[in-house]
Design a protein around this nucleic acid. Structure first.
Lengths: 348, 348
DNA sequence: TTGTAAGCGTTATCAT
DNA sequence: ATGATAACGCTTACAA
């Protein structure tokens, strides 16, 4: 029998090629191979050649899990958004993920569906991976989540919102100001009886902030806010239809409606068409989000365009700066105020 | 001085509460605390009580990185899709992520932008995390990616495609068949001069398979396929417009056009409207994808609806079955053939 | 520029 | 039902 005392040791690691396998092959210590990856400058040129050759010949894939455990800094960034498939956050996720990937970081993603409980679960699960950074959406969190964010030993970013008094890095805009912006736009156009249709999704608190901005602006102008609340269970389109029908059969009709988002607005517009109304003559309509379909509706939808892509990019950049991966001044750059833009089309 | 010989040891682990901290607090070995999480049945009731109490009092968060290294099976699943923000894959990602999360698995996500090179990079990066499973989109991969998939020591799933002869689990539909389906639908409606407009994105090979299905069907019917190729650099809307204008100023016009996807179709429809054409009288239009705006166009868009959400759900389920997390028969369930559905609206 | 030794926090093995 | 010990594969601190 030859060499039968070779340790079997295939218990766990299923025979993957390891750092020391490469090291053995080249005839150096595993430390040197590690340096080859993390500090190539510290390895001599001839050695670099031979190691590089061995790495690709052996098909070595660095075990990032082991690396993270050893260094306590994994190249993963975790992100929680209300939803992935909505037209709003997808662009942010995409930009965020791409910017990270360009620097060797991967994205761990979960959605909260505007539920603080689900957000909390996601954050808790993420923390176990000790990600390099943690990104959450808006400043509305459960107490437990707040606590985790405060104690988390890593950069924390809040996106799609802007609360200068909060300590996590803020990348977004002030929703209340967006409500003001919408109301002012319509007032400037001469509309007087301006209604606001709330989102049918209960947990969308940011939409309520936009509503508050609208209400305050109307009151300042000496007008009475007029808020319609759809049945909370209904789907967006349906809620928009509901709102439009209810509002237009009043004896005193609104002359303009701000919908909490473009989905609701689209539902409203279609309902109006069906009733033979012609917009914006009978009633102006304004949305929020500038979803892909906004320019294709009839009439095309006037709406507010949030800087979705920019938020993703800047958030990623701030994370990378905090991690020291890319350079950037330190000042008050935890504040990143952005703005929505009125996209004027036919409906208002 | 009291206890000044306490080991400093704050080198790396940044003072997080560990398993053995909890164990020390309760007065058991860390092994028992580990069991409390992974095999609760093996821990006696009174101990379970005390451990549970200590865990929440100390705010212990399991270190998933350490756990993964020790057990060589992390609760992470990696997924590569062409893009996140497109209207097509978002629903799949959402459903996939949610189904996984329900079973304690997290989603690691990256996008390839229909580039085999970017896909390869993403897969390579993911493998380092030794995810529990790996999901990629379609069967078009670089050689190196194929090799990695073949050698990966974990369940591999290909979604949005169906190639029964391939070994990874297949969850999706046959794109060629969808091309046939579209052509047959239009032929059935009596259209004769049916054109196909290719995607302007170069790497979208699946769209080419749909085209081939269309071409074969026309030839079988004794008709000549008529394929329009937009400038490869142009954006989808723009490409659709381009195609529509080019095709409609021919002396012999098509009486129906199949666009590679709904974005192109929307561009085409808008261009037609602008030229004063009325669809489908002057020319029928059919898309692919059933994007959110399809019912809101004028005319509303007839298109093929892919089972996006279902793909995500089933893919997640198959992964969980392979991992033994949920039960399921073993047979030939690596094959999951689904179908697209013609959504008949006004445009064709 | 290269190497040695000591963890990182958990789970698998084997024992009691 | 519980525990002692040895991995898991890598990186940091300290030497040489």
């Amino acid at each position: 029998m030859s060499e039968s005392n070779q340790p079997i040791r295939k218990r766990r690691g299923a025979g993957r090629v390891t750092l020391s396998d490469v090291a053995k092959d080249v005839g150096v210590s595993s430390l040197t191979v590690s340096r080859f990856f993390n500090h190539p400058a510290q390895v001599s040129e001839p050695l670099r050649q031979r190691i590089g050759e061995a790495v690709s010949r052996l098909g070595y894939v660095p075990n990032l899990v082991a690396g993270s455990l050893a260094s306590a800094r994994g190249r993963i960034v975790a992100m929680v958004v209300p939803n992935i498939s909505g037209p709003i956050f997808a662009a942010t996720i995409q930009a965020f993920s791409d910017t990270l990937a360009r620097h060797g970081y991967q994205l761990l993603l979960a959605s909260s569906y505007f539920s603080e409980e689900q957000e909390e679960n996601a954050v808790r699960a993420f923390l176990g991976w000790s990600p390099a950074a943690l990104v959450v959406t808006s400043h509305f969190h459960s107490q437990a989540t707040e606590k985790m964010l405060a104690e988390a030993d890593m950069p924390v970013v809040e996106i799609w919102d802007y609360q200068p008094e909060r300590s996590p890095i803020q990348v977004g805009f002030v929703h209340r100001a967006v409500g003001v912006q919408a109301a002012q736009y319509l007032l400037g156009k001469g509309y007087q009886r301006i209604a606001f249709v709330q989102n049918s999704v209960a947990g969308d608190f940011s939409a309520l902030e936009r509503r508050d901005g609208y209400a305050a602006t109307l009151e300042e102008a000496g007008l009475t806010p007029w808020i319609f609340v759809p049945h909370s269970a209904s789907a967006p389109f349906e809620a928009g239809r509901q709102a439009m029908e209810a509002l237009m059969q009043r004896s005193v009709r609104p002359d303009a409606i701000i919908f909490a988002n473009d989905n609701l607005a689209a539902g409203g517009l279609l309902a109006a068409q069906r009733s033979g109304l012609s917009m914006p003559q009978d009633c102006a309509v304004m949305g929020f989000g500038d979803y892909a379909f906004a320019p294709m509706l009839l009439p095309s939808l006037t709406t507010l365009r949030p800087p979705a892509l920019e938020i993703g990019e800047v958030a990623a950049l701030r994370v990378l700066q905090q991690l020291g991966v890319v350079s950037g001044q330190s000042g008050a750059d935890h504040l990143n105020l952005m703005h929505c833009q009125v996209v004027e089309r036919e409906s208002a």
